[in-house]
Simulated scan of single mutants.
Amino acid sequence: MNKHLKVFCFLITTTLFTNNLHAQETFINNVNMAYLDKLVAIAKKNYPEVKVKQSQVNAAHSNYNATKFAWLDGLTASYIYSPQNLVNQAQPSIFKGYQLAITLSIGQLISNPSIISAARETYKVAQYQQAEYMLSLEAQVRKLYFTYLEAMTELRLRTGAVTDASSAVKQLKYAFQKGETTFQIYNEQLNSYYNQNSFMVQAELATWTAKTNLEELLGIKLEDVK
């Protein structure tokens, strides 16, 4: 077997072994459900939109409680004072002193049940919207967590590929200097090394982007999650 063939066989064997090792990488084994549940709880506590939904529920509830006493708006109280020693010939009255008069708006009394019903339904809608948003937020956190794990797994793969390519370049450089391989084979491996570096940079960007997106929902850094 000539020396060029030996070098070629070495590269093929190394590449196949490396690819087989990297193919076994999976982010599923890194999923921590307890940690994920903690992230969901943190997002539900810190994300501003959660507080907006809660304020809307509180406002709707307060309005509903207020409508229960709306009939009092149609209630009017007044008083008349007739001195004991005053004789009114034009409008004689048998009552002396303070006289209390109370009037009630029938229209207000009749419309009040429908007002209460509408306020109650508005309160329910606010609660339903809050529940819907909580489910949506939880799904978003889980999705971004899985995306982050996937990105980190891809980054590990790309980092390993760069290490392998770098090692192969060093081997070929040594072989090329000794005249055991051609410049073409050495140059091809150099190009592969540069490509792997480019892929690793893209993987780094994807990892930081996924981390940033997840932390936006959490309101804190992942490093601060206890």
Rank of each mutant, 00 (worst) to 15 (best):
N2V: 06
K3I: 13
K3C: 06
L5D: 07
K6L: 08
F10V: 01
I12C: 03
T13K: 03
F17M: 13
N20Y: 04
N20D: 11
H22S: 05
A23Q: 03
A23P: 10
A23G: 05
A23K: 15
Q24F: 02
Q24P: 09
E25D: 12
F27T: 05
I28L: 03
N29W: 10
N29Q: 13
N32T: 07
N32Y: 10
M33Y: 12
L36T: 04
K38T: 03
A43E: 06
N46D: 06
E49A: 01
V50L: 09
K53G: 00
K53Y: 00
Q54K: 11
S55L: 06
Q56P: 02
Q56V: 10
A60C: 08
A60E: 09
N65V: 00
F69A: 02
F69P: 07
A70L: 09
T76M: 15
T76C: 01
S78T: 05
Y79A: 02
Y79S: 03
I80Q: 07
I80F: 10
Y81N: 03
P83R: 14
P83K: 14
P83F: 09
P83E: 09
Q84E: 05
L86W: 06
V87Q: 03
N88R: 02
Q89K: 11
A90C: 13
Q91G: 02
P92Q: 12
S93G: 02
I94N: 02
K96L: 08
G97A: 00
L100D: 04
L104Y: 13
S105W: 04
L109R: 09
S111D: 12
N112P: 02
S114W: 14
S114A: 10
I115K: 15
I116A: 03
S117G: 04
A118P: 02
A119S: 05
T122E: 09
T122M: 13
Y123L: 14
A126T: 01
Q127I: 07
A131W: 14
L137E: 15
E138A: 15
E138T: 13
V141H: 07
R142T: 14
K143A: 03
L144H: 05
Y145Q: 04
Y145E: 08
F146G: 10
F146D: 15
F146R: 05
T147F: 08
T153C: 01
R156T: 03
L157R: 10
L157M: 07
T159W: 04
T163W: 09
D164F: 15
D164H: 13
S166V: 03
S166N: 06
S166D: 15
Q171P: 06
Q171V: 12
L172C: 09
L172A: 13
K173H: 12
G179E: 01
T182H: 07
I185C: 05
Q189P: 11
Q189D: 06
Q189G: 10
Y193D: 01
N195F: 10
S198F: 15
F199E: 15
M200C: 08
M200R: 12
M200G: 11
V201S: 04
A203H: 02
E204S: 07
E204A: 09
A206S: 12
A210M: 12
K211Y: 04
T212L: 02
E216D: 11
L217C: 11
G219T: 03
D224R: 12
V225I: 01
V225T: 09
K226R: 14
